[in-house]
Design a protein around this nucleic acid. Structure first.
Lengths: 255, 255
DNA sequence: CGGGCACGTGCGACATTGTCGCACGCACCG
DNA sequence: CGGTGCGTGCGACAATGTCGCACGTGCCCG
């Protein structure tokens, strides 16, 4: 059918499906939706499958009929739950700790701070504190840089409140922070070297849901000399490990 | 980025955009959204334009920033308002009356009945009643058949309540009605010959919004001998006129 | 008050992607 | 127990969404 150019057909159709489902109190069959919109069954089913995946519609397992999902109502209550994220990430975090030999943290953004929702100790039996539940400053940590880089407004309000210095290397200038975040976006991971605690460095990468929305960050932390080379650049092998695990968790979250 | 096959990328991205906008109370810039999702500006803009078009997001004209639209909340108020539909259709209805020489009606589905929201008299100066506001039986009129054919559940509940006969030719059997609606869907227009009033026939076609959702129907009505040939088939020239005007109104509604 | 930067917007070409036709299993009805 | 109609999945094609680039504008900073 004649379609307005410049607009995305599948999104228009999705909204039509949602409106149709919202129209009546009843759940609808694939065939009914396809007929009502003049679409082939396959196409309607494909759209429905995607909408179900993102939580906008739900399918009754008994009748196989589709209705509006909870995701539409939850639009105001940000994406994914922190506990759910933690559950999905557990195994991968352990894997990362094993491979890298460093401690692993999983963080989300909460009230403008980094909330550590999971913490795996370094594989050796050294003395360490459990950081789960701890809050970290976003501008001074690798986890925080990742979360800021992919959040639209958190960086602004953080800057507005001033950037506290924790070490000599903490980024406190708004311009420099903006540059660091742009770099993080460009390469897909963040590095922090002695910006939070002297002698410590960290590497982190984003966890994304379908569509690319960042809902969390995973990263490793350890002594500067183990995470970086002599020029204070991140060791590529470790970066790859972190990025790979972040992608694995992302895949897990979407399942 | 690695994308789950079988799912529609642009819809996933749309939901990510919506979640992002829902995340904070602030409106966001195109750049912010693009960066947060890791998309090129153009792509983000294209998605936003479409979402705005379907009413899921709104753009503040002053700041050019995007926020969630009213359309999300109004999902229950199936698409377009009857008055708005009427306004957009006025000129085209007149055109159709002029070309066809018959009276024109514009109808929507309301409480399981056809509500006539607009009525243009036959161009000659004969005596006619203004039908605006009148309710018609869906199963016995061309307008009604169109609206039923593209509505998922209306036909069911109508059948459940029983099909009243108005003439000798009124369709009262549920099977026959189902067949008529399937035919209507297949060819894109509906015909009614003496099913509502003896001596009268009607031809109608659907008005669709973006995505294909049917929100109304337009049609002409007149004496059987003018609308049909000797075998009681609709005259193709008239069908074309009705279908063409329905498409024009559809285009108007989407603008 | 002027210069420069960054943003929103639009277009066009390419390649990816969504679409559509077809077929399989299954469940329900007759 | 046969038949019909449904939901689902796959594959190939072509339409479609994506992306790079450039224009004009408004804002901020100097």
């Amino acid at each position: 059918m004649s379609h307005v150019p410049g607009l995305i057909q599948s999104i228009e159709r999705s909204s039509a499906v949602l409106r149709l489902l919202a129209g009546g109190p009843d759940r609808l069959r694939v065939k009914e939706i396809a007929d009502a919109l003049g679409l082939p069954k396959s196409t309607a089913h494909s759209i429905l499958r995607t909408l179900e995946h993102v939580g906008f519609v739900e399918q009754d397992p008994r009748t196989a009929r589709y209705g509006l999902g909870r995701g539409l109502l939850d639009l105001s209550s940000a994406g994914i739950d922190a506990n759910e994220l933690r559950g999905r990430a557990l195994n991968w975090a352990d894997t990362l700790a094993g491979r890298s030999g460093e401690e692993v943290r999983l963080g989300v953004l909460s009230d403008g701070e980094v909330l550590v929702v999971h913490h795996v100790f370094r594989p050796d039996d050294s003395l360490q504190n459990l950081d789960t539940g701890v809050r970290l400053p976003p501008h001074a940590t690798a986890l925080g840089k990742v979360l800021l880089a992919y959040h639209a407004t958190a960086a602004e309000s953080l800057v507005a409140g001033g950037l506290d210095p924790y070490t000599r290397r903490t980024v406190t200038d708004r311009r420099e922070l903006a540059r660091a975040l742009a770099e993080t976006r460009a390469r897909g991971w963040a590095l922090s070297v002695e910006e939070w605690r002297p002698g410590l460095a960290a590497i982190a990468a984003p966890v994304r849901t379908s569509g690319g929305l960042v809902v969390g960050a995973v990263g490793i932390a350890g002594p500067v000399e183990r995470l970086t080379d002599t020029r204070r650049q991140a060791r590529p092998a470790l970066v790859d490990q972190v990025v790979a695990v972040a992608r694995s968790i992302s895949r897990e979250v979407q399942a």
